[in-house]
Structure formats: structure tokens, C-alpha cells
Amino acid sequence: MTRAAPIAAQGAGVGRSGRVALRAKGMAHTLLPVMTVLAAILALWYLACIPMNAGQSVLTAARADVAVSPESASDRRGMSGLALALRNPGVAVAGAYGQDRARLPAPHQVAAELWAGTVGEPVSSNRSLIWHGWVTMSATLLGFVFGTALGVLLAIGIVHSRVMDMSVMPWAIVSQTVPIIAIAPMIIVVLYSVGIQGIVPKAVISAYLSFFPVVVGMVTGLRSPGSMQLDLLATYGASRLQVLTKLRLPASMPYLFASLKIGIAASLIGAIVGELPTGASAGLGARLLAGSYYGQTEQIWAALFAAAILAALSVGLLGALERALLGRMGMR
């Protein structure tokens, strides 16, 4: 919603301030479609539960001596969930939403698990999703801060040194095309073998993943001032440090925030993947892995949603910070 609203726009004069009315109008403009799409996704999810869980529901019904359509179990084994659900509609619908380890748990089951994991458990319990989320988030934030700081420093170096620009920058760009997350298991195990474990190896992966987006974005940002602006500062007799602090760094802020949002999302993925290979006992990645070992699908889905909420919160927080800061700086 960055488009400037025309003063004479429809509805601009309604209410005490045109801006408020316009914002309200804009909300309705996106809110209704977004809600419709979300409702459609939920409806599809509930619908998909029936065929996905049909095998288990029919099996349970057959064990409880309810008549099911292909009577022998060997006949049923070869059938798809959809075919089973079509031949036993009543049984499939009745059994779709209450299973313990459903192939696809229903949204309300996931929500209940999420609720039980966050509100229903004390924070110190090792079944609390808040505790696991914090374990992952602390590594993410530590790595993100280090990765961003190093990335900004390297970008400043690249902008000021031609040699660094020509030698490092192509590799920084190439590194964006490489699935660097493949290195994660190795970093964990190597650091473990030299006696470093816990938060640091995950933070190293997070730092590594947020580093390159920040470098590439900041180099673009620090170079964004035009020659007119640079010339003006040159006529003021500004030193390179003054050009950096008074022109280049402020001008790079929009680019910095764009990279930060990419960086924090990548950092979180790094921390989650960093918990996979060593069989870590705490963290959202550990919950995912444990859930997949023991077939606890609700646990997987709850951990997945917890990770999504964390990512959304951190990106949203950065977005709010961006709006506040750029607003104060008069950049939007």
C-alpha cells in the first residue's frame, strides 16, 4: 500500500480524516479477498483430511465390526485413499477428524496441539513449544546479528576498495546460487568434534546464511547515492568517513531492511536445519525430527506452525522497524 492516494479519491472525505477513511477502505479492499483465500485453504484442508485419513478410518471401522465396502483387508491395501473414501463415505467422514496419528491432522487438531504446547505447558517444560521456539530463536538471533554486522562491514570495504570489489563481489554473487545449507551438518559435527556445541554451531550456520544477502544488498545500497549527491559532498570537502556516515549509510537503509528481511528468514531456516543432523534434543528442528521418527504428525504440524509464526513475527517486526525508521528519516 505505498501508492499515494489521490485527494479526490472515492471515500476520501468520509469520516474525520480522509486518511483514516482511505486506510479503512484499503483494509476492506484487501481484507475480504485475503479472508476468502484463507477460508478456501481451510476448507480444502478439511476436505483433504477425508481421503488422506480414509485408510485408517476404514481400518478402525472394520476392526469395530462395522461393514466396510471391500471386505478383505488385502483388497483394501491396494486402494487409494480417495477410492476408499468414495466407497465408504459415512465411515471415512466420521473417522477423518479424530485420529491420534492422522496422516493429515485437521486444522483444529493442529491448533489444539499448538495451544497445548504454548499455553498448556509451563515454559520451562521440555514439551513447551515456547521453550523450543526460544532455543531456535536465540541461535537465529545471535547468528543473524553477527552475520549482518560482518556483512555490513564487508560491504563498506567493498564499496571503498576496488580490489576487494573485484575479487570478493563475484564470489558473493555466485554464493547466492549455491545451496550453502548443505554445509550445515558438517559445521555442526566439526565444531562438536573440537568441543564446541550448543548454541554456537547453529548460530554459525545462521550467520553464514544471513551474511551473503546482506553483503549483496548493502553494496547496492551504499552505491545508491547519485553522482550529484556525491559531488555536492565533494564540494563541501567531506572526507570519505563523512561521505559514508552522512550520505552512503542513510541512503542504504531501504536496501538494508530488504536484505535484513531475507536474512532473518534464511537465519531461521539455518537454525532449524542445524538442529537436524546431531539429533539435538531441543529446538523446533528437533521437534520436527522427533515427530517424523515417531510418526507424531500433530507434533510436526505444530512445530511447523510455530516456526512459521516465529518467521512471520520477526519479519513483521523488521517491517515495523523499517516503517518507523524510514518515516523518521523522511524516506517515504
Binding site: 479477498p33 485475503v34 528468514a265 531456516i269 532449524i272 504428525t297 510436526i300 512445530a303 512471520a312 519479519v315
Partner: peptide, 24 residues
């Protein structure tokens, strides 16, 4: 209508750690 609904949802989903769906 669909574009206005899908675009914010898609933008949101693109920022999520979707790789976590792997075990499922």
C-alpha cells in the same frame, strides 16, 4: 479479487521456513 487475496498470502508464505514441511 483472487489476485488481491492470493498476493498477500503468497508473500507471507514465501517468507516462511517451508522446508519444514519436508518430514510431512
Amino acid at each position: 479479487f483472487l489476485r488481491r487475496g492470493l498476493l498477500p498470502v503468497g508473500n507471507f508464505m514465501a517468507a516462511l521456513p517451508i522446508v519444514g514441511t519436508a518430514p510431512i
